[in-house]
Design a protein around this nucleic acid. Structure first.
Lengths: 253, 253
DNA sequence: CAGTGGTCTAGACCACGGT
DNA sequence: CCGTGGTCTAGACCACTGA
């Protein structure tokens, strides 16, 4: 027999702290309420501020807290469900979608994008910037790459750039048939420009949704959308509006 | 005193450091190569170890690095594409899927799950644990909740628990028609049990995929799958095997 | 065993938001 | 201006891995 391991597993302080805080959030705080500042909290729990911050960071990552410099730490509402794909596949800009065109320029795409678009090296494409707002706050920033070949009838548009041109490009795109979409979701950290759009600090965790729009068997456009990982739950499927009470994750059963 | 302010950079040190390291990874290191240890790296860049670690953490979050205690920091291969949904919707356990049944118990589900299953409070359901391996390493751990009503013909099965029973439950599930699936993806941190399964530390960032299986208009089962966020890119759509060269994110355009 | 990353401390200063 | 969270330092010890 021998090794009866009771496993006196030394749980890290910040991990235990996270559990304690999480329970406190459930029982003693209301959504939107402001927590004591980090220095007070650290003193109250008898740990260094860095340790306390490690716990807060995890809770923010899980969407339980929201921290803003100069303001304080508040209890976050449950993550909002954001529909990424419906059963019926549509071009970007289909009527009633939640995206707002911001700008349109012409630029050389990153190599990874150029590879998906199968454009020649150095070839410029239309680069649309769009943002998505849900429940009154920005949830996603998107860069939509559209090769010139996908919007041949754009010559008549006078606006050389800006939101007006962006809408024109989207309008032209919808004249084509859409064969399908390929999507991928991965974790990333917000670039400086996206972070600004999302009202977060650079490096904030984001869910990066890369979508390839297929028309006539070729990639007609590629979209890279970065969603705030702290506030969003991406939904796929038919009943996008269904309420899921709370993420079962990180909660003890 | 560290703050050498000759650089007109309001950019945080760790952020700049991350960029420098990222470029170095592209140009000077091969996949799998071991980096110098954190103390040496910090000294080389003239920063405290904590600051260096902040940069490494971000790079690990983005899937560029892999760190293992007692071993070192290695250059991670590009994220692997993991198919989460195909066009044809299937029950879990459909022939040829990548999941491996591990265990099956009967337990009361978390309240959030019970809400989706619309089971009575306190009612026990089958809880299957499955793991998913891709390219030789574990990528996901799943808990599949199946109400007894969804598998009425399970009485003949002798195995009270374990992998054999898990496979039996899955087999019974497939006898029903599948109306559709609802999926949601969100960021979470690995619970201790999932972390062990995924060969990561507790708290590691994971992509939580919650799937609701609909049959005859009711929720026949709910699955909560946690994917390693550092190594996985979740793919949705028809051409799940398509190679996407590199995440365009976090790379300067 | 030695070396690695993981945790933790007790300070300090900075950047930002609101008053 | 003050108070907040964000960044940074220079140590220390612990837990794990592999030889």
């Amino acid at each position: 027999m021998g090794t009866t391991q009771l496993e006196a597993a030394p749980e890290p302080k910040y991990w235990h702290l996270k559990t304690v805080l999480s329970d406190a959030l459930d029982s003693e705080f209301a959504v939107g309420e402001i927590l004591p500042n980090e220095r007070d909290l650290a003193a109250r729990f008898g740990v260094a501020r860095a340790t306390l911050r490690q716990a807060l960071e995890q809770l923010e990552l899980e969407g339980r807290l929201q921290r803003r410099r100069g303001v304080g730490t508040t209890v976050a509402p449950p993550r909002m469900g954001v529909a990424v794909a419906s059963t019926d596949q549509d071009w970007p800009g289909a009527s009633g979608d939640a995206w707002q065109a911001v700008d349109c320029t012409s630029d050389e795409p990153p190599t990874a994008i150029a590879g998906m678009l199968e454009t020649a090296p150095g070839e410029s494409v239309h680069v649309l910037r769009r943002t998505r707002v849900s429940h009154g706050q920005p949830v996603a920033a998107e860069l939509l790459y559209v090769p010139s070949a996908s919007v041949p009838d754009l010559t008549g548009i006078d606006a050389p750039s800006g939101a007006a041109r962006a809408r024109a490009v989207v309008r032209e795109l919808q004249r084509f048939g859409l064969d399908g979409q390929d999507r991928a979701v991965e974790l990333g950290s917000a670039r400086a420009d996206d972070a600004k759009e999302l009202d977060r600090l650079p490096g904030a965790p984001v869910l990066v949704v890369t979508t390839r729009y297929l028309s006539d068997g070729v990639t007609a456009a590629v979209s890279v959308a970065t969603y705030r990982a702290d506030t969003c739950r991406l939904t796929f499927g038919d009943t996008t509006g269904v309420e899921i009470h709370h993420t079962p994750h990180t909660r003890a059963s």
